[in-house]
Design a protein around this nucleic acid. Structure first.
Length: 757
DNA sequence: TAATGTAGAGTTTTT
DNA sequence: CTCTACATTA
């Protein structure tokens, strides 16, 4: 066990602790992950069966990396028996095993946030509620936080405090929505993210046999990022650990930055109350950053009231002070950072991947990107729309979902008329109505439209039948074929591949590429699973995919590129040089946080996280003016800059510059007008199209019989074009026309006026 | 049914 | 400003 030699005293003690509850408070950069992996390896060396170890992490990526590290230390054959993953993925797995006990199919669907919100929208329509008052996002958050606090729909409706809170915000019927929402999920054989934890809690609470089974299986439990767990998660832990109490949690209260989505910092602050015998280990030596960075970060976090006692220190060099950049505008801020990176790079000859620019909101990336582009500095930006949220990906996954679970109504609605097969809104509404009246699901109606008496005409019934048959044929395919083969066939037979292939616009091209990428992922999955002798069907793929995120796709193309990301996304990462941009009041700290101490403290922890990402030097910057939604606004430097003790700051111009700024703004007030000498951003001319399309309309179309393949035609708006194809029967005759300079368009002849030339 | 127009909203994010 | 969701129009 010579690996223990490489640990410091505190780390080694934490690793060697085996029995009983333990809390490891791990300061930033203190080698937390190393301790956790070593501890698991140590348990295995001590003869504990990996089969009895459960290790929970914040992301799948973290789990995967840790598993690999353990495998390289104790051997693959041991490591593969470890249960390792996020709360959601581990307990989804268990719920699939125990599905009968909770009344769900084993291949239940996991609804993502979009599915949930769309379901809430349809419920609002049913109940005739105004979606402007009952904003789906708000309703969802309300239900989500109830679930995270283990309040069922029934308990919710009986909780007077909650009801009166909802009434005060003029949304008294949320309890009703919650109930209906759960009913719909049950009927759809679906769970949302919170349900995965909620149902696990119910299962462990109500079924002593199941509880006993998993208590005995998971004799040793490790939890990473414990500061970001919520009540529901902690309750699961308490239940599972109740028998042996071999639970080790690792975390840093100073880095708790996810309260806004239900994480409860009290879990870590009060761990000792739940487990009075818990041994507490403090990892306080920082191996990452210079003394100046560590001390500056400490001075910031000390302004928070709620925290566990610890003193992070380092033996590293003193290093340089935190540099403060003051700028007149967000553009200038970007240029200042770009210039500094350029200068540093000449000086140090480091790769561009040594630099990160961190910010509070994604919207800030634009000005920064522009500056980097102008300076020819390569960068990679994280965030934005994730791969799995893209339309085309959700479309294909929608087909997979319906195939696996035809009760998945959100997925049915997504794909039933995409690609278009003539089943429109009216038809769907009729069938939904029939389903509601007969107290059944949409799929049942789809498979027997006549039996349910939906008042549909013959051709429509035929279209519905052929859609149902299509799905049924997919069900046969996935019975015996691999995920890849099934996926390939479904993508082709559904018409999706053709649909995206036909679209030759830039967007269409990238959509097609994304579909291909997903199929490539399926292929990789199928082959990997087969190699390992594991099941490789579509169902197996789908049971994992709902819980994956972009960060799990370890794309290694960030080499030689500057990293741009939000501070949240930077958690757990490190860079030699870090730029924290936009340190302005109402931006960082965010405007929404400055009214409560708790929220403000969370923002301050976020700043702490930002500072402690850096190894060598930190630059913080702010702008005096910034464009927000097209308007120039004036900004004040963030209070967080003053939270850094002056001795660690390099703030050359602080006094005279800010003073000048204040004089300047005073002069301008009270009329908030843009001074003529203020920098104006470049904005390209817009709405050119509008000007060219406003001609009076006395345009006559030719009769549809004259519109034939090959004909040269003219359209009022699109101009001259050539008919490539005509399909369908009058009055639903459709022509595909190629217009010069515009591209291919599909037009319904009963609407579009086309003149034959 | 599909393209186009318009109103409204707009932290942080993983599962 | 920019994106999205819904209504409108052909």
């Amino acid at each position: 066990m010579e690996f223990l030699e490489s640990l410091n005293d505190a780390q080694r003690k934490a690793v060697e602790h085996i029995n009983g509850p333990a809390m490891i408070i791990a300061g930033a950069g203190s080698g937390k992950t190393r301790v956790l992996t070593f501890k698991i390896a140590y348990l295995i060396y001590k003869g504990i069966d990996p089969f009895n170890i459960l290790s929970l992490t914040f992301t799948n990526k973290a789990a995967k990396e840790m598993k690999e590290r353990i495998a390289s230390s104790v051997g693959e054959s041991y490591a593969k028996n470890l249960w390792m993953g996020t709360f959601h993925s581990v307990f989804a797995k268990i719920l699939r095993i125990e599905h009968q006990k909770i009344g769900f199919p084993s291949n239940f669907t996991i609804y993502d946030t979009d599915d949930s919100k769309s379901l809430i929208k349809t419920l609002l329509k049913d109940m005739n509620l105004d979606p402007k008052v009952y904003k789906p996002g708000l309703v969802y958050n309300r239900i989500s936080s109830a679930k995270n606090n283990l309040i069922s729909a029934n308990e919710y409706s009986k909780n007077s405090a909650i009801i009166s809170e909802d009434t005060r915000s003029s949304k008294p019927l949320i309890y009703e929505l919650y109930k209906k929402y759960q009913n719909k999920l049950l009927r759809a054989g679906a769970m949302d993210f919170d349900d995965l934890l909620f149902k696990t809690n119910e299962l462990l609470r109500d079924d002593p046999q199941v509880l006993h089974k998993y208590q005995n299986k998971f004799k040793y439990i490790m939890v990473d990022e414990f500061q970001d767990t919520n009540f529901s998660q902690f309750t699961i832990l308490k239940r599972l650990a109740a028998l042996f109490e071999n639970i080790t949690v690792v975390g840093d209260d100073a880095q708790s930055i996810y309260a806004f989505r239900g994480a409860n910092i009290q879990n870590i602050l009060n761990f000792n109350k739940t487990y009075p015998d818990a041994e507490v280990f403090r990892l306080e030596q920082n191996y990452r950053s210079t003394q100046n960075i560590v001390n500056a970060a400490n001075s910031v976090i000390s302004k928070n009231k709620e925290q566990l006692k610890k003193t992070v220190w380092t033996q590293n060099d003193v290093g340089e002070k935190i540099r403060v950049f003051r700028n007149n505008s967000d553009q200038e801020e970007g240029m200042a950072i770009a210039n500094e990176i350029f200068r540093l790079n000449n000086e140090t000859h480091l790769d561009f991947e040594s630099y990160a620019i961190l910010y509070r909101t994604n919207a800030q990336s634009r000005a920064l990107e522009e500056a980097l582009r102008k300076s020819d500095i390569p960068y990679r930006i994280y965030g934005g729309l994730s791969f799995y949220q893209r339309k085309e990906i959700k479309d294909l996954l929608g087909y997979f979902r319906v195939t696996l679970n035809p009760n998945d109504e959100e997925a049915i609605k997504r794909i039933i008329n995409f690609p278009v097969r003539g089943i429109g809104k009216t038809t769907i509404d009729k069938m939904v109505l029939a389903a509601t009246e007969n107290d059944t699901g949409l799929w049942q109606v789809l498979t027997d439209p006549i039996g349910y008496n939906c008042n549909l005409n013959g051709p429509t019934v035929a279209k519905i039948r052929s859609f149902a048959d299509l799905i049924k044929s997919f069900r046969i395919i996935i019975e015996k074929e691999s995920a890849y083969d099934s996926g390939q066939k479904i993508a082709a037979s559904s018409g999706l591949l053709k649909e995206f292939y036909a679209d030759k616009s830039a967007e269409g091209l990238s959509r097609y590429e994304n579909i291909q990428e997903l199929l490539a992922g399926l292929k990789e999955f199928s082959e990997d699973q087969k190699e390992q002798g594991l099941p490789n069907g579509l169902a197996d793929f789908m049971s994992e995919v709902a819980l994956l995120s972009d960060q799990d796709n370890t794309a290694d193309d960030q080499k030689e590129k500057v990293t741009l990301m939000t501070i949240h996304a930077a958690k757990g990462l490190e860079f030699p040089y870090v730029f924290v941009a936009g340190l302005e009041e109402n931006l960082f700290p965010s405007q929404l946080s400055i009214n409560s101490r708790e929220d403000l403290e969370e923002e301050r922890r976020l700043f702490y996280v930002a500072l402690t990402r850096a190894k060598k030097r930190v630059h913080v910057s702010y702008a005096l003016t910034r464009f927000k939604w097209g308007n120039l606004i004036y900004c004040e430097p963030s209070r967080f800059i003053e939270d850094i003790s002056e001795e660690f700051l390099d703030y050359p111009y602080l006094e005279n510059q800010t003073q000048r700024f204040h004089e300047y703004t005073k002069k301008q007030q009270p009329s908030i007008s843009i001074p003529s000498n203020a920098p104006k951003p470049y904005s390209p001319p817009r709405n050119l199209k509008k000007l060219s399309s406003s001609s009076p309309s006395n345009f006559e179309g030719s009769p549809s019989e004259l519109i034939i393949t090959g004909a040269e035609v003219e359209h009022q708006r699109f101009g001259k074009g050539k008919v490539l194809q005509v399909e369908g029967q009058s009055p639903n005759k459709k022509a595909t026309v190629f217009f010069q300079g515009i591209g291919q368009k599909q037009l319904l002849l009963k609407f579009a006026k086309l003149k034959v030339l």
